[in-house]
């Protein structure tokens, strides 16, 4: 018997096992087949004259394309901001004890999730042409005229933001609701027992914890929105896709300009993917004992083989 309490008498440790590892010929063969196929496709894409890479290079950083990228980003940010804020409000309404509030929220979600976003975009785009004026006032009472010409307020960009944002709010509402419901009931009880009002405990205790559940699908929604914003081209908002369309309508370089647009979409979604990873990491604070290492830390581990402490 060894006595673990005595340092001068260390327990005998057997030698580490040395064995011939199992060979995996199947893995090597399948890898080789895939590598050949991929190389063929890449070669075809690079050397195919139809892709006109010189044209792609010429337009990739052209002023009008960059302007289109800016509009796409603005559209995505505004629509997502509307979607997230609206979604949280709708989710809180949906969970409210007041049947009118939760009913209205249910109908909103039913309406905006049940019709295509393209139809909604066209709806907001065409709405100002059929209403004469917009005024603000007491319900069913006197009002003050705001404008005789609704198109000055409902510009194409506003129509696009409304179409995308209001639709997104319906989806975000369900995501936020799932997040709020995921928080343990004991948390609200503990908050109440400390004297917190419902509103305060929602803001300080429930929502921050719901975020951990809400963030990952919201990241997906943002990436999806970046691409869906291209639908605004249909109502001639000059975003990335419509810019490319305008250029190829003039120059007939259809494929190269679609490639230009795709490269930009891919670049932006890649950035968002990385951003999402770090935001998720931040909101998982307190959820587990230690945070998972970042990709950089993992890379360092692969290179040096020394375990890193996640910070």
């Amino acid at each position: 018997m060894t006595d673990p309490g005595r340092a001068d008498d260390p327990p005998r440790r057997p030698e580490a096992i040395r064995a011939v590892p199992v060979r995996h010929p199947g893995r090597w063969i399948s890898a080789a087949v895939i590598v050949v196929l991929v190389a063929q496709i890449v070669n075809w894409a690079i050397n195919n004259p139809a892709f006109k890479w010189n044209v792609v290079g010429k337009y990739l950083f052209s002023t009008s394309i960059l302007q289109g990228v800016k509009t796409t980003i603005a559209l995505t940010i505004i629509a997502m901001a509307m979607g997230i804020l609206g979604g949280i409000v709708l989710a809180v309404m949906r969970l409210s004890a007041n049947p009118i509030l939760s009913g209205v929220s249910w109908v909103y979600i039913w309406l905006f999730r049940g019709t295509p976003v393209l139809v909604q975009l066209l709806f907001w785009y065409n709405l100002p042409s059929v209403i004469q004026s917009i005024s603000l006032g007491v319900p069913f009472g006197p009002g003050w005229l705001i404008t005789d010409d609704p198109t000055t307020i409902f510009t194409k960009l506003v129509a696009a933001c409304l179409g995308l944002g209001l639709n997104e709010a319906a989806y975000m509402a369900e995501i936020a609701r799932a997040g709020i419901l995921s928080v343990d009931e004991g948390q609200v009880e503990a908050a109440s027992a400390l004297g917190m009002t419902r509103r305060l405990s929602m803001r300080r205790i429930v929502l921050p914890q719901a975020m951990r559940v809400i963030i990952p699908p919201t990241g997906n929604e943002t990436i999806s929105m970046l691409k869906t914003s291209s639908l605004a081209s249909v109502i001639s908002v000059v975003e990335l896709l419509y810019t490319a369309q305008i250029i190829y309508g003039r120059t007939f370089q259809v494929i190269p300009l679609l490639i230009v647009a795709s490269i930009w979409y891919l670049f932006m979604t890649s950035i968002l993917t990385v951003g999402q990873y770090y935001i998720e990491r931040r909101f998982s604070r307190g959820a587990s004992r230690s945070l998972p290492p970042t990709p950089l830390q993992r890379l360092r581990f692969l290179v040096t083989r020394s375990p890193v402490m996640a910070r």
Binding site: G186, A190, I205
Partner: peptide, 19 residues
């Protein structure tokens, strides 16, 4: 809530705020 402030409560499952 005003009145609850004067009464402390400790739960079986702790219910600390994890965030």
């Amino acid at each position: 809530c005003q009145k609850r402030q004067e009464i402390g409560m400790v739960f079986q499952s702790f219910n600390l705020f994890p965030h």
